[in-house]
Nucleic acid binder design. Structure first.
Ligand code: MN
Ligand code: MN
Ligand code: MN
Ligand code: MN
Lengths: 220, 220
DNA sequence: TAAATAATTTAGACTTGTCTAAAAATATTA
DNA sequence: TAATATTTTTAGACAAGTCTAAATTATTTA
């Protein structure tokens, strides 16, 4: 059995693990969960005891396959609830995250299974993030950070890395929601900003701050 | 703010309060929550501090209007989730209670409001219990315990007082689900058992043990 | 490579909710 | 009404999760 606190730690460690091979540092976990490093150390010991992470003191943790499976099942629930809240209850995409943070801890595989079916087996959440399948497999869909793109061309916004309401509201105001297509017109070498243009000819500037939180796929 | 533990205590006290004017005894709360009397005393002090109950030591508690409002809002959520689980996710009526016990603590009035609308503003839950409205008003629908009935006649099963899966499965096997109509054929003075007959001529015996957990309304 | 700085862990304390066993109050019964 | 039985409360302890401040360990920098 895992408590919801343990689940939140595992989720944070999992998210901090993806993309880099290194072990996750205490301070990174503390920052991500807005808690003290001392608390993180305590919890890490507990998770290590349960073989959810491999812990080497003073050198951070690595999530184990066992811990990863727990994390992925929570992430699966989180994203399914986000789809429910948006598709069925008509919440906006910047309102669903906090509620899903609570709902994800309702522990029933049967509930998750039926919710999945009720929603029509969605593959992505409202922010464009892939929903892990029952076996914990994530269908990475070839999306890359907009800030990593080096050549101009047509792209489609497939997801975001910052889920905060303020960022999502900012994007919506600019016309950027998952599924939006645009072309890169100009890329500035100096400050890494770029200018993009939508199919309706409207054009906007995007700073590095923003583009490093946008996931895109090549379009056409 | 109330913790989910506090909410569970308030719900238990509210349920033990309805129907009798007396104060609720520590042992009754302990029994209902499967906890020790010592724990109940501790929590009662805390709830009293928050003006959720009036506490006179050694003489039990009375729930205040403030505490009652909290209890009713949790009961409202519980019953709405039960409707969701049964109507939308196709759970059976004996499977929804435990899940609703968890979901009811997800704290968002906006979520409750939208869930209510999504479900089409239901007035009763799958067990026939009335769903309190936003203001905490319960529409008592003239239902009485079958065990209290004194005259034969046609009745409709409107609800149950025992929500345990085993009891609900027993009822279903006998053909008794909310909405079932039947006539009382025979009432035994000695052991308070009764014989009822359905419209399809099938007839069954009901013991006092069972009838005191069945809520009925007069039919026609 | 030794001192200074930064990160991490330990020590000790606090809160919430729980328990068992003992003490106190209430209720029962003879 | 006085002894007995029952219920309730208190006392003291524990687990989970958190914190601040002090002690360690690791990393930088000179
Ligand atoms: Mn989210
Ligand atoms: Mn999401
Ligand atoms: Mn229920
Ligand atoms: Mn119910």
């Amino acid at each position: 059995m895992t408590t919801s606190t343990e689940e939140n730690y595992l989720k944070a460690i999992y998210h901090l693990s993806t993309g880099n091979q290194n072990s996750v540092l205490t301070s990174a976990i503390a920052g991500s969960l807005s808690t003290s490093s001392a608390s993180v150390t305590d919890m890490i010991k507990k998770l290590s005891e349960k073989n959810m992470v491999e812990y080497e003191r003073y050198h951070g943790v690595r999530i184990t396959r066992k811990g990863e499976k727990v994390a992925l099942s929570i992430i699966r629930r989180h994203r399914l609830w986000e789809v429910f809240l948006m598709d069925k209850l008509k919440f906006k995409w910047d309102e669903v995250h906090d509620l899903a943070e609570e709902l994800e801890h309702v522990s029933s595989d049967e509930l998750t299974k039926r919710l999945d079916a009720f929603l029509g087996f969605p593959k992505f959440d409202p922010h464009g993030d892939p929903i892990p399948d029952t076996n914990g497999k994530v269908h990475s869909n070839g999306q890359v950070l907009l800030s990593e793109i080096t050549k101009k061309g047509k792209y489609i916004l497939s997801g975001v890395n910052d889920h905060s309401p303020s960022f999502l509201q900012y994007l919506e105001k600019k016309g950027l929601i998952p599924g939006s297509t645009f072309s890169i017109v100009e890329m500035d070498e100096f400050d890494n900003s770029m200018q993009i243009i939508f199919s309706n000819k409207k054009s906007i500037f995007i700073s590095k701050e923003v583009s490093k939180n946008l996931l895109v796929r090549s379009h056409e």
